[in-house]
Simulated assay, not measured.
Amino acid sequence: MRTVPLGSDDTVSEFILGTMTFGTQTSPADAHTQLDMAVDAGITWLDTAEMYPVNPIRPETIGRTEEIIGDWIAAGGTGLRIATKHSGEGAHPRDGAPITAESIPVTLEGNLKRLRVDTIDLYQFHWPNRGSFQFRKNWTYVPEGERAAIRQNFADCAGALAREVERGTIRHFGLSNESSWGMMQWNAAAEATGGPPVVGLQNEYSLLARLADTDIAETLVHEGITMLAFSPLAAGILTGKYQDGAVPDGSRRSVNDSLGGRWTDRLHPAVAAYLDLARDHGVDPVHMALAWLRTRPFRCVAIIGASTTDQLAHELAGADVTLSEELVAAIDETHKAHPLPY
């Protein structure tokens, strides 16, 4: 498994194991098998969050995914570094309270206890207090909050995280569902307070979701921030399993018909075009979608999630696939023909 720089002094495997279905669609036993499979394949990181599992999200299951991972670690599981998240305003934990300097140590203690570890390798803010354009909110996005208050919150939180770094409870810091402005404001606050800089951005990014290709891309390049792309297969859409109206038993669409707002009338022809490209170039469509991330002008890794071990094995089989320049150019032309299909 190849690695990509993370910050100035670390690396992350090109695939990260996503765990958001552990405890709902994925049983604890299968989850532990997936963790072992990831280690065997050379993956060195996993990604989770305090609010997981999803599909569906329920208040009574908050933290269950971290507990399942913690059980694996307690049973001797090793070889995977941990990225997890502190939920932001409007999320289920803490009744939707915002991220503050006061919430950070309390939330982090919960993460550590459930995961049964002493240190989180990458601690991320799951969702900005001020909202985000991610998850299809780009169509009606309006910036929220007052600049001074946002900057003060960043400064306060950066100071709180600096204390956690000093305590040894976190190593790195990242943002999720963030904007270019948010990343730059955080880094300014971190520099002023001695807090940890942003080393990772976890946003949705795939052949079907390329909002990051302009200003975010420039920020990632010049600030040395690594994209941790979630939903690189667009919630399974890019596998082709939902074409012609199919809804396989146990699939995400069987429990979330709109796939989080991704299902639109414009989606089918876009997916068909990418499936045709993969067929014409003799590449598995799953492997094409994941290998494409390696062609980006910024550091980029894929968070690969799977409900089943068979799905994970399929994704892992494409770890060494590379795409020809001709195919990458054809992908860009297809994107121009089918921009933002959801």
Rank of each mutant, 00 (worst) to 15 (best):
I104T: 05
S103M: 07
R136M: 12
Q152K: 15
L108V: 04
S132D: 11
A148R: 10
L122I: 00
R136K: 09
P105C: 06
G110L: 10
P143Q: 14
N138V: 15
P105G: 01
T107I: 04
K113F: 00
K113C: 00
L108T: 07
E109T: 02
T107C: 09
R136G: 03
P143F: 09
K113R: 09
Q134F: 15
P128R: 10
D118T: 07
G110W: 07
K137C: 04
K113S: 11
F135K: 12
Y123N: 03
E102T: 05
K137W: 07
F154A: 09
T140Y: 12
Q134L: 15
S103G: 06
P128V: 02
R116V: 11
P143K: 10
L112Y: 05
P143W: 11
S132H: 10
R130I: 02
P128N: 12
L122D: 00
W127G: 01
H126N: 13
K137R: 15
Q124D: 07
Q124E: 05
G131W: 07
E144F: 00
S103T: 14
F133V: 06
L122W: 01
Y123D: 03
G145I: 04
E146T: 12
T140A: 12
I120Q: 03
N129C: 03
A148K: 07
K137V: 00
G145D: 08
T119Y: 00
V142S: 14
K137M: 09
D121R: 02
R114D: 08
R151Y: 05
L115V: 01
H126A: 13
Q152G: 08
G145R: 01
D121Y: 03
H126S: 10
S132I: 11
L115A: 10
L108A: 06
R114E: 09
Q124K: 05
R151H: 12
K113T: 04
P105T: 00
V142G: 10
G131H: 13
I104L: 13
N111T: 03
I104Q: 10
S132E: 12
K113D: 13
D156C: 01
F135A: 15
D121S: 02
K137P: 00
N129A: 06
Q152P: 03
G131P: 04
A149R: 05
Q152S: 13
V106W: 09
I104S: 01
E102V: 04
V106G: 01
D118A: 05
R116L: 06
A155W: 08
F135P: 05
P128S: 12
N153F: 07
Q124L: 07
R114L: 08
Y141A: 12
F133W: 12
P128A: 09
Y123A: 06
R114W: 05
W139Y: 14
D121T: 00
F135Y: 13
K137F: 08
N138E: 13
N138K: 10
R151G: 02
E144A: 11
R130K: 08
Q152E: 15
E109R: 14
N138P: 00
